[in-house]
Write a protein that binds this DNA or RNA. Structure first.
Lengths: 184, 184
DNA sequence: AGCGACATGTAATACGTTACATGATTGG
DNA sequence: CCAATCATGTAACGTATTACATGTCGCT
């Protein structure tokens, strides 16, 4: 039930439509939570039924109407209570590491190609998070306190992507070293 | 269907029972894949139906009998083919970072307590992985080439845990700094 | 005329989590 | 005698993924 909390955490700041929430999860929020639009619409419906959010239909000109969801008092209470509970590490399920683990079943070249691909992906995300850091968090004292907390989460994203890039370099270098030369 | 590949990757080295596989996923394999015994038994049954593994009933003295699963040729082929496909980053869903994101809804003390708890968890895993590194990978040239690949995956686990510990320190320090003092 | 952004959904399937369920043996 | 380890499963439920589905508007 943690997607629910992620959505409520966004709605604590301001109202969002399902579409807007989806965009948030595709952007910087993606550094700590991943969700598709289908999950979000389903969860919003469930949250509305539990009265943790309330939807307002907003008529728009020049574009489709939207449902703006706002956090209710009950929703805010539920979220605050959850904040005090201990949080567990998320489950890691990394295809890439299954492949390195059984890497002797393929050629080093195949592994290295995949590692380089991953490196590019993580480098791109890292650049994106650095841009957000520059644009939104270059002067913490200049932004309202509620917004400052987002920097803590972003910092984890920055570390995570930088660390993946570093591992990719390390792993590729090892695979190219004599220790992993084909004959063994 | 990636749990299937993780299981086959383990079976590529030697045969395992469901119980033994569960132990592996709780141990060092846990640095890149998480699975419960229920998932494993279900997946083994599915893999057997697809003829990617074959079960041998092994009678034991002094303990319950077990089913030893071995990789079939078809299973090995299927695994090898999968190795060449590009691998995507796994989905991050971090409760902890939802909490820091909306941290203004609770007190810094509550957040810091949770962060310190997480730090202890990650430090413990880091120590465990370091122990495995010392015991199994201190001299790469002394171990058979197939086993060396496991070190690449372990290195990612070492990085991951160390990076979390570092973030916990960074985040706790920030929360104790004037930038996050309650009044804003 | 077609593409991309806006906007919201259903349905089917796959996968993960939690609870329930059993039973032998070993060591304290 | 009780708890822990070995050993394997079923059932119910919750969550995630993938495919399908629709329609507007603005721009080129």
């Amino acid at each position: 039930m943690a997607l629910a909390h992620a959505i409520l955490a966004l709605l604590a700041d301001r109202s969002f439509s399902g579409y807007e929430l989806t965009k948030e999860f595709e952007g910087s929020v993606g550094c700590f939570w991943k969700a598709t639009h289908q999950q979000i619409y389903r969860e919003l419906a469930a949250l509305e039924e539990r009265r943790f959010v309330h939807a307002d239909l907003v008529a728009q000109e020049g574009r489709p109407n939207k449902k703006l969801y706002e956090l209710t008092e009950a929703g805010k209470r539920w979220l605050s209570e959850w904040m005090a509970e201990p949080s567990e590490p998320c489950a890691v399920r990394e295809d890439m590491l299954v492949k390195t683990f059984a890497g002797y079943l393929t050629s080093p070249e195949v592994l290295i190609a995949d590692i380089e691909r991953r490196k590019a992906l993580h480098a791109e995300k890292l650049a994106y998070y650095r841009q957000i850091e520059r644009e939104h968090f270059s002067d913490l004292s200049a932004i309202p306190i509620e917004k400052r907390f987002g920097y803590l989460s972003l910092k984890r994203g920055l570390r995570y992507e930088a660390d993946w890039v570093a591992w990719c370099d390390e792993a590729a270098a090892l695979l190219r070293s004599p220790s992993f030369a084909s004959p063994g």
